[in-house]
Amino acid sequence: MAERVREVFARAGAQGALHAVPIGDLPWPGQEPEAAPGRPLGPEVAVAADEPVAISSVFKILLVLEFFRQADAGQLDPRERVRVTDAHRLGGWGTAGCADDVEVSLRDLAYFALTVSDNTAADVLLDRVGLDTVRLLTEELGLTRTRIVGGPREALASMLADVGARDEEEFAALYRALPGERKRSLSVLDPRRANASTPRDVTRLLDLVWRDAAGSPRACARVRELMGRQVFRHRLTSGFGDDVRIAAKTGTLPGLHIEVGVVRYPDGGRYAVAVFARSRAVVADLATVDAAIGRTARLAVDHLRTAEGAPAHRL
């Protein structure tokens, strides 16, 4: 199976890392596999699953989870309204691309951060939630290979600094002229310098959220709901039939294509999948690589379902 996954990525001009596991087959926080005899580890598909990877916007799952945990604990009011101004804007979707000031609630910032990967919404929300609390959350959940260094604003600042640009417009002009190796050396692509994790750590996070073990049931349910409303359907979703439900989060940087999520079949089978692809072409939009994410996810889930004795499922 690992060879088949690598072959799909190679044909798309990329290298991939992947981890897939049935929901419920991982130990609860604080439990090692040998300390949980009643919960043996089940089948998995692992391709470079323990290699560190830059996680880009996958970070927003942790941010929004911590936001809803604090809201559910009464530490902040999700209805609190904030004004998003030109000084906050980082470019991209949602409030990040608005031309005028926007007034919005904190919970709507969470909505934008997960559904359209709004960088400005995530940045403003992080100021309210606190970077240190997100770091503490990774420790609490046993995400031992996950490291959080900052939010979208820090990521943008590092990109500008790496090429010596003063703003996004100048960055775009300078970036186009860079050789491929120079583009691949950007800090945001380096797991030693950027927000980073491993595919296995990410599926652990998804598993905990889907089992209400990452916070209160209400907080976990809100994260699941918003991931289920993500508007981007060109990666994981492309590999599955219309009756398969997918709740996911993308991550995209030049040369880095990510999608992580939970795949739910009509028979109730649920599978956490994390796919990371680095393309040889250092650009942000490659349909062949995006399709390979869906294809490899489908291969992995089909393998898990066969191991479980689940019935075959057609596209």
Rank of each mutant, 00 (worst) to 15 (best):
T95I: 08
R135C: 06
R89N: 00
S105N: 07
E66S: 05
G94H: 02
N119S: 13
R89G: 02
F112R: 09
Q75S: 13
L125K: 13
V129A: 04
D118F: 02
L76C: 03
V129G: 03
T133F: 06
A121C: 12
S117M: 08
L90Q: 07
D86P: 00
L65R: 07
A121R: 06
A96R: 09
V64M: 08
L141M: 03
A122L: 02
W93G: 09
L125V: 14
G97E: 05
A73L: 14
D72N: 10
L125Q: 13
A87M: 00
D100P: 01
Q75W: 12
D132A: 15
D127W: 14
C98W: 15
L106N: 08
G74P: 08
F68K: 10
R81E: 14
G142D: 03
S117D: 08
D123I: 11
T85C: 00
S105H: 06
T85E: 00
W93I: 06
D100Y: 12
G97Y: 04
A73I: 10
D118W: 02
L109T: 05
G74V: 10
T138M: 12
V84W: 00
D127C: 14
E103V: 11
T138C: 15
R69S: 09
D86F: 01
R135S: 03
G97D: 08
E103K: 04
H88G: 01
L114F: 10
E103Q: 09
L136E: 15
E140T: 09
L109G: 06
D123C: 13
D77K: 12
V64D: 04
T115Y: 09
L90S: 04
D77H: 13
V116D: 07
L137M: 06
L106G: 06
W93Y: 10
A122G: 07
V124A: 08
V124T: 05
Y111I: 04
F67A: 08
D132R: 15
R83A: 14
G130R: 08
G92W: 00
D118G: 11
Y111Q: 13
F112I: 04
L76F: 01
E66R: 10
G97R: 05
D132V: 15
V102C: 02
A110F: 03
L90C: 13
T138K: 12
L126G: 03
R69E: 13
T120F: 00
F68H: 15
E139G: 12
L114M: 10
D132C: 11
D86E: 14
R79N: 11
